[in-house]
Design a protein around this nucleic acid. Sequence first.
DNA 1: AATAAATATTACATAACTAAACTATATCGG
DNA 2: CCGATATAGTTTAGTTATGTAATATTTATT
Lengths: 164, 164
Amino acid sequence: MTSSFAPTERRLAVTCERYPAFPREPAVLVRLVKHIYKVVHDDANATLKPYGVNHPEYNLLMMMYGTPGGEMTPSDLADAAGEKSANITRLTNQLCEKGLIHRKGSNDDRRKVVLTLTAGGEALIESFLPEICGLLGRQTDKLGVDDQHQLERLLKKMLDGLTD
Amino acid sequence: MTSSFAPTERRLAVTCERYPAFPREPAVLVRLVKHIYKVVHDDANATLKPYGVNHPEYNLLMMMYGTPGGEMTPSDLADAAGEKSANITRLTNQLCEKGLIHRKGSNDDRRKVVLTLTAGGEALIESFLPEICGLLGRQTDKLGVDDQHQLERLLKKMLDGLTD
DNA sequence: AATAAATATTACATAACTAAACTATATCGG
DNA sequence: CCGATATAGTTTAGTTATGTAATATTTATT
């Protein structure tokens, strides 16, 4: 799966020739992000498949794992994971059916629903985390520590500009 | 839509506390890419909607626009756009129905299919490109020229490590 | 000639998005 | 306190998108 970026760059060059106003640099960045996201997403799905969860479900689980107290409402999850609320209902249903999370009504605001990880959910997370850590490590293999910090800084700057 | 990254960082900190082997820096990078991709993708879809094409269709059109000679096979497109071949058939069907591309059998290898942009396809591309250029510009607004080049370099390095 | 590999399509199953309707609760202005 | 309005979450239906696996056809290999 040698998805070299070179052909994409050649196409951008041709595009700029045909349409000189086309901003090469921003387009390169956007296409790079797209390429990287795709590979990362596919890798994660492949790694998670044996554990019976897909990437969106993994994201929800990790959001809950990383929340102090471990309680989140569906709205919290929607914000955190960038999913639509209709999706959250579907995904949390799946996680409930698998026994990974637990759903109960909130006491202080009875419109709300509180989701928590079950013991089984935490156990599953901690069973796939070793592999996930390995994957994350491999995915940033080529980058030195300085590179990683630079990249973090620049991506944050870019994200900042997007959410205005 | 203030999708600040701060909550995500707090969750990563908690995750690292609970599971010390968790590699914070790689995880930050992956989550940043995911956030950025999502916003970029949604923005592009919104911009393209009035033109009757979605993001994947736009990608295919731009791949063809940027290909010298303008001829591509479905396999070429699948590689270039990172789509599954079954998807390519569906997407190119849609583009054919809209009269934006043309499909014909290849002469030298009769397994192959050759796709070309129609005049209408090129016209549509050049009608939405002004808006797309504006969007691309805004999406990288916050980054100076040096930042953009640094970011390009680092993303390429990361992508390199992914496709081993 | 037989077998394997490549190309594209098809059919089926899953997943996701959208928009609206619905339940229940909370909040605010009078 | 009352009634209007807003919020939280779910549900439904319809549409669109994506992924998987099998198939037909043509070309390559041995």
